[in-house]
Simulated assay, not measured.
Amino acid sequence: MINTKRVSAEEQIPTIIAEMQNAAAAFRKIGMGVSVFGSARIARSHPFYALGQDIGRRIAQLGLPVIAGGGPGLMEAANRGAYEAGGRSIGLNIRLPRETRNNPYQTDSLHFEYFNSRKSAFFMHSLAYVVLPGGFGTLDELFEAITLIQTLKQPPAPIIMVGSTFWAGLIDWVRAQVLAHHMIGPFDLDRLTLTDDVEDIVRLIQEAIQIQPGREPALPG
Rank of each mutant, 00 (worst) to 15 (best):
F143V: 02
R57C: 12
P72G: 13
L74Q: 13
L51Y: 07
Y129L: 14
L96W: 10
G137C: 07
Y105W: 15
F187L: 14
W173Y: 14
F166G: 07
A85M: 13
P65V: 13
A157I: 03
S164L: 01
G81W: 02
F166E: 05
V174K: 03
I90G: 10
Q106I: 09
A128W: 09
R58G: 10
P156S: 03
A128S: 13
T138H: 05
S126L: 01
R88S: 15
G70H: 14
P104E: 07
I90M: 07
R98C: 02
L139F: 15
E141V: 06
N93V: 11
V174H: 02
L62I: 13
L74H: 13
F112E: 01
Q106A: 04
A68L: 13
E99W: 07
A128P: 09
W173I: 04
G163F: 01
F115C: 07
L62Q: 15
D108R: 05
G71Q: 12
H182M: 04
F112D: 00
F123Y: 06
I146Q: 04
I94H: 08
V131G: 07
F187A: 15
Q150T: 04
G73E: 12
A121H: 00
I55P: 00
A168K: 12
L192K: 09
N116A: 10
I171P: 04
Y83Q: 13
Q154H: 03
G71T: 11
P65E: 12
Q53M: 12
F187V: 12
M183I: 05
G163Y: 01
G135W: 06
P156I: 01
A168Q: 13
R95V: 14
G135M: 06
M161D: 01
L64N: 13
P186S: 09
T100I: 09
L110S: 06
P65N: 12
F143P: 02
S120F: 08
A60C: 08
L179K: 14
L142C: 00
I67F: 09
S164N: 02
W173P: 02
N103H: 09
F115K: 04
G134M: 03
D172V: 05
K119Y: 00
G71F: 04
M183Q: 15
A50G: 08
R57Y: 06
A121K: 00
A145Y: 07
I59L: 11
L51K: 14
G169P: 05
R58K: 15
V131M: 06
P186W: 11
T147Q: 02
E76I: 09
F166Y: 13
T100N: 10
T151C: 02
G70T: 12
F136V: 12
R101F: 10
Q150F: 03
A180D: 09
G70D: 13
A145G: 08
I149K: 04
Q150A: 06
F115R: 02
L192M: 13
N102C: 06
H182G: 10
P155N: 02
